[in-house]
Design a protein around this nucleic acid. Structure first.
Lengths: 171, 171
DNA sequence: CTTGGAAAGTCAATAAGACTGACATAAACT
DNA sequence: AGTTTATGTCAGTCTTATTGACTTTCCAAG
């Protein structure tokens, strides 16, 4: 059944429209293109440092959770330790990340950003935040609420708590 | 989620709450994890065919716009022709994509999915749609509307019209 | 105190998917 | 006839990922 998409604000009566295959296909494509936009700005900055997205991700999560252990970062990023290690080694050698032996468990390495690392983190996240802030601002608070609600549902259930629950601290 | 609102937030900043750095940082992380979830299901299927995401993207957009020219696909995907060509060559050799000489412009190749290609496309998009449909369903129509509104804003302005097929209309 | 296993790091080989650069061919446009 | 466009291809490189095997250090249970 082909549907004539009226471009006026959809009435609340159109409650089922959002589940048609066409609507969902549009959502899928928007996720694809939005992710491209989402990474575009940091990618440009990273180029000048000969770093890639992998470095950005590591820097982001070390900044979010200073003292993060390598294993926890592996869980978050969902890559192999060999893959992460190459990135981490670079960042440590370049003086952006500090890897300190754990106090309780001396096998662990707790990761921290150095001042230089924090500077790059800020540069990267400023660029990314700028786009998101603008998007939020243009879309409005209601839309942002819905945006988060849907994203939350798309995230793998096994990760959802780990990602969203910041009250739930790690030992 | 409810935790952030209680502390020292004055009531008048309620409208601005969604623009705090912390809220935006959460949005950034959710985009990262949601994109992982978004691609997880097709990725599993692709493995069994020794194809990757690049093949999925090509198949998706050829299916969406049968007869698409190579140059248009390049614009959509934002990669070099060398990169796309390797993927396209495989898909044509494997009998999933049909590349026909253009009728008006014989330099062009118009791309179509074969029956086999359509079958894989359905398999992949079924898996992906299932997750999105469930997310939409759980989040509700209001949220979906907001989701799309924000995603649209994150997409690069230069791509927005091209992507959304909205050259003639506005919201 | 010995031992099993966990946390981290490393070496090697491999793959996907992207890139640049150079070049070839056919067809359209001027 | 000459130029530009659309496509395709060869060659080389890069980043990020993989699996597999192995080591060192260290915690904890027997």
């Amino acid at each position: 059944m082909q549907r004539n998409r009226i471009s006026q604000q959809p009435a609340r009566s159109e409650q089922l429209l959002f589940l048609t295959d066409d609507q969902i296909r549009q959502g899928i494509e928007m996720m694809f293109f939005a992710y491209r936009g989402f990474t575009a700005d940091p990618d440009l900055i990273l180029e000048t440092y000969t770093y890639g997205r992998a470095h950005h991700r590591a820097i982001h999560f070390i900044n979010r959770t200073p003292g993060l252990a390598v294993n926890d970062l592996l869980d978050i990023l969902g890559v192999t330790k060999q893959s992460l290690n190459r990135v981490l080694r670079q960042l440590v050698n370049d003086g952006l990340v500090d890897s300190r032996i754990g106090k309780q468990d001396r096998r662990q390495r707790n990761l921290f950003l150095t001042d230089v690392g924090e500077k790059l983190e800020r540069e990267l996240s400023d660029a990314q935040r700028k786009r998101i802030r603008k998007a939020y601002s243009n879309a409005g608070p209601e839309a942002v609420h819905g945006f988060r609600k849907v994203l939350e549902q798309i995230i793998d259930p096994s990760l959802r708590d780990k990602v969203l629950n910041r009250a739930n601290e790690k030992r």
